[in-house]
């Protein structure tokens, strides 16, 4: 299990024991224990990544399970020219995007089924009361909600850079976009978050 102060992606790759690439190679040769070691190593970081992306824990675990299932099914497709972490995060990111698209479709469908009547629907407020914000959990919840509300192109880079602490180069490999684009999106994503979370950040 990862500790709060532990680096989310770097520590397990630099820790003692076989590297990810060695494990996947053993798994490609039929060693199922190597696969389980990969699962134990990546299940929490991947769940965090997907959770911030989707904003729902159960959906996040489903997507991560599907990610491991894809790794299991397509283990022969991994070639040792890229980092294993890049490969698995790419799979998880693509599955998360698919899930987001599916949600959008569902949302559209459910909206199209709504009829017009005389009732007034009160939308829940996205702002917490000032007292509630003081609470640490509420603060975290607010930050998570604002991350989730970011456009996907900014959200994925901010999560990978500032929460998962990937290097720009790795993010560029995972998302298959140039480093310059990654940097630009990170900064734009940060600016948006700063504006939204100004009241929280000033207090801290």
């Amino acid at each position: 299990m990862l500790d709060k102060n532990e680096k989310r992606t770097g520590s397990f790759r630099r820790s003692a024991g076989p590297t990810d690439e060695e494990l996947i190679e053993r798994f490609q040769k039929g060693d199922l224990y190597a696969f389980e070691a990969i699962v134990r190593r990546y299940k929490d970081p991947l769940t965090n990544f997907v959770y911030h992306y989707l904003g729902d824990r159960i959906d996040a675990e489903d997507v991560v399970q599907e990610t491991f299932l894809r790794v299991y099914r397509n283990k022969h497709l991994y070639k040792n020219i890229a980092k294993f972490s890049t490969w698995i995060y790419t799979i998880a990111g693509n599955l998360s995007k698919t899930e987001l698209r599916r949600r959008k479709r569902r949302k559209l469908m459910s909206l199209s089924h709504l009829g017009f009547d005389d009732k007034d629907y009160e939308l829940p407020s996205t702002l917490q009361s000032p007292d509630g914000i003081v609470d640490g959990e509420m603060k975290e919840e607010t930050i998570r909600r604002e991350i989730e509300a970011l456009p996907a192109r900014f959200k994925e880079v901010v999560i990978l850079r500032d929460i998962q602490e990937f290097a720009y180069e790795e993010i560029s490999d995972i998302l298959n976009i140039p480093i310059g684009t990654v940097k630009s999106r990170v900064n734009r994503g940060r600016s948006r978050l700063q504006k939204k979370l100004q009241h929280l950040l000033d207090k801290s």
């Binding site: 709060k4 929490d44 965090n48 930050i143 998570r144 500032d162 929460i163 940060r190």
Partner: peptide, 15 residues
């Protein structure tokens, strides 16, 4: 400040 707030979010653990 923002980087610090994001970095210090409690990581969630799988079931």
């Amino acid at each position: 400040n923002l980087k610090s707030a994001l970095k210090n979010l409690h990581p969630i653990h799988t079931d």
